[in-house]
Write a protein that binds this DNA or RNA. Structure first.
Lengths: 213, 213
DNA sequence: TAAAAATTGTAAGAAATTTTTCAAATGTTG
DNA sequence: CAACATTTGAAAAATTTCTTACAATTTTTA
């Protein structure tokens, strides 16, 4: 359980519930009906409707028997839960293939995320453009973080410099590290670390393909 | 629990355990000592040593009191568990920013994954090179899948064509879909689907930053 | 309007996972 | 070599998460 201070509702979410709530959010975004039943969400996501109802029961929302849940309300609750209504300015460190792809990613807007800068150490890359953004040297980091009130940084540098970059970011006031490097990073307590190592996904696939169906 | 047929050991893994085992694998890859204790693994990954021991107890390996676990053996067990010793030829569909970045990703080799082709529909892109690979039209799909015995395909196309591409891939004999599109995909039973939607990671960050630390 | 059907909400029970505890084994030190 | 410290391994307890079961509510239909 993740505890939460403010009142209103219990506001404690089992971690697995939180993961599923993200899926509901993604699903509902593409839905253009007004109402949806737990049964339908369940079928689409291959889980049980009871599970869906239980998850949703954590939110400040209530469904209508025989009709289902009001999708805009559900989306509203989930937006609030995930802080989507507040736009976060984020920065990307590392303008290689992954960093550039991330900088151009179209999906950020609808979840309240805006990439305000991309950094690199390589003087060949500095000054070139990735989409609309000019690649900046790390010496501009402090200025940008202050100016745009950046709390989140994505790390897209090679494994060997990931820790170094992390330390620098934390020093400059970054509060959350979104790590795309295949490295185990260390952060001071109070700093959030989210690992996005893509090899994990394919390890699951390989495991399942070989060991099961 | 994920059940498994072949004997030797119980070979059933709680899903959370499996996730942590991947982390151990990543951690141990960068380690060059001979032995490591549950305590050290735990400290690095910010979990408890008991948890680590319990996880490792699922494997066909046993630690030495006062010394710890033999790292090469542990790596060997984990490699086998995740099928890393067997190389999988995978293909990428979608030669945009993300697809290209993925095709150039260096980390695949050490987990037994090789990208053998990248596809796109856009005639502007077909024939251009991404690293060493020429972008191919989807009409070449069948040939490549057969020729390289491809079981896994990564989907890096826009949301709106993701389902269509999925259907095509399944039809051509692909057994596992690694989905990078921000879409809820449907696959026939027996086909594995692994979602890698990167927005999920940052939703977690936004939630935690606002609601807690 | 009353009965029927569909759907939510929740409490209780079951299952899965994590934490606690502690005995057994193996090095290490005096 | 004996006492001690460290570390594993495994059983038991506690906690968390999921499933089951069913009552309550609302719409539909006759």
């Amino acid at each position: 359980m993740l505890k939460n201070h403010i009142g209103r509702k219990p506001l404690m979410f089992p971690k697995p519930t939180l993961e599923r709530l993200k899926l509901y959010y993604a699903l509902l975004l593409t839905e253009n009906k007004d109402y949806i039943s737990s049964d339908e969400i369940a079928k689409r996501l291959k889980i049980t409707p009871e599970q869906v109802r239980k998850d949703i029961s954590h939110l400040n929302i209530t469904g209508k028997p025989k009709v289902g849940y009001h999708i805009p309300s559900l989306l509203g609750e989930l937006s609030e839960l995930f802080g989507i209504s507040v736009t976060d300015n984020i920065i990307i460190v590392g303008a290689g293939g992954l960093g550039s792809a991330l900088a151009r990613y179209k999906g950020f807007e609808k979840i309240g995320v805006k990439v305000v800068a991309i950094f690199d150490n390589d003087s060949e890359k500095i000054g070139t453009f990735v989409g609309e953004l000019m690649v900046l040297p790390l010496s501009d980091l402090q200025r940008v973080v202050k100016r745009f009130k950046v709390r989140i940084a994505a790390i897209c540098v090679p494994e060997e410099s990931a820790q170094e970059v992390t330390d620098l970011l934390v020093e400059k006031g970054i509060k959350a590290i979104w790590n795309f490097a295949p490295a185990i990073l260390h952060v001071p307590s109070g700093i959030l670390l989210e690992n996005e190592d893509i090899t994990r996904g394919i390890l699951s696939i390989k495991h399942m393909l070989d060991k099961k169906g």
